[in-house]
Amino acid sequence: MANKGQPKIDRERCKGCLLCVRACPTKVLDVDSEPNSWGYYPSKAVAIEKCIACGNCYTVCPDVAITVYKE
């Protein structure tokens, strides 16, 4: 059974580049419909149950706006 994980996104730190959305192999992330206080539309975990804790999102994130936990 694959690892189970959880990305935690600091939506204020995120600038909405969405590179994490592209990098996630199981499509856990997508763009948030609500902007943060900077006016960026940050990334959001839309299908958290699919997260396999691979850390790709963390790896490509230019702002260390994502931390990943493993269950």
Binding site: T59, V64, T67, V68, Y69, K70, E71
Partner: peptide, 9 residues
Amino acid sequence: MELLYGHPK
């Protein structure tokens, strides 16, 4: 929950 990828010190 175990932190896998956190912020570097």
